[in-house]
């Protein structure tokens, strides 16, 4: 964990990324990918594993940031990630409850374009996550199929994660069984 990020680094980035979570868009994914994965501070496989854990566990899916915080700065990092989610969210929720009518116009304006901005951020995260893996054309086809499936049927993400893991295991066993 000698990446120089530390408690405050985790806290700062997670707090900032929370602002890009309008409408369920996972702003954290894009920000963490952009700041830590693409800069080589966090391995893409660990990032993906943390993201998968968020879907396997109960409660809000954003709890995956706890694992990211742990990978970046140990237990203090995990705590920082939780605080980084709780502070801006409780402020935002309280303000929204109290002054909803006052902020409604701004929220309406921002939320319309936010979907497209978050779509762009998620695409950036996806491409940035795939780049260091240098996927083969077969793997690129697989990514395309998963993308199509998600758009077409909107399956539970847990099924995607489980399916991908099973395929990876089958391919590994098949390669191990082959001579040479």
């Amino acid at each position: 964990m000698d990446n120089g990020v530390g408690f405050l680094g985790v806290l700062g980035l997670v707090m900032l990324s929370t602002l890009f979570s309008i409408g369920g868009g996972n702003g954290q994914v894009a920000m963490i990918q952009g700041q830590w994965v693409s800069n080589g501070l966090l391995d893409p496989a660990l990032f993906a594993w943390a993201f998968a854990l968020g879907h396997f566990t109960p409660g809000p899916k954003v709890s995956f940031v706890t694992a990211i915080g742990y990978y970046m700065a140990g237990i203090p990092g995990a705590i920082a990630a939780m605080i980084g989610i709780v502070i801006p969210t409780s402020l935002g929720a309280s303000l929204a409850s109290h002054w909803y009518q006052r902020f409604q116009r701004i929220i309406n304006h921002v939320s319309i374009s936010a979907s497209m901005v978050i779509a762009g951020m998620m695409s950036t995260a996806a491409i940035g996550l795939a780049q260091p893996l240098e996927p083969s054309w077969i793997e690129l086809t697989g990514i395309g199929l998963v993308t199509f499936l998600v758009v077409w049927r909107r399956p539970d993400p847990v099924l995607i994660v489980l399916g991908s893991g099973v395929i990876g295991a089958i391919v590994w066993f098949a390669r191990s069984a082959l001579p040479g």
Partner: peptide, 25 residues
């Protein structure tokens, strides 16, 4: 191998979610 495969699956998931998010606008 499993982690590599899951990462690729999540790349597809993110791209699909991005498309769904754009549609939801």
């Amino acid at each position: 191998a499993v982690q590599h495969s899951i990462t690729l699956g999540i790349v597809g998931l993110l791209l699909g979610n991005a498309a769904n998010m754009a549609q939801s606008s």
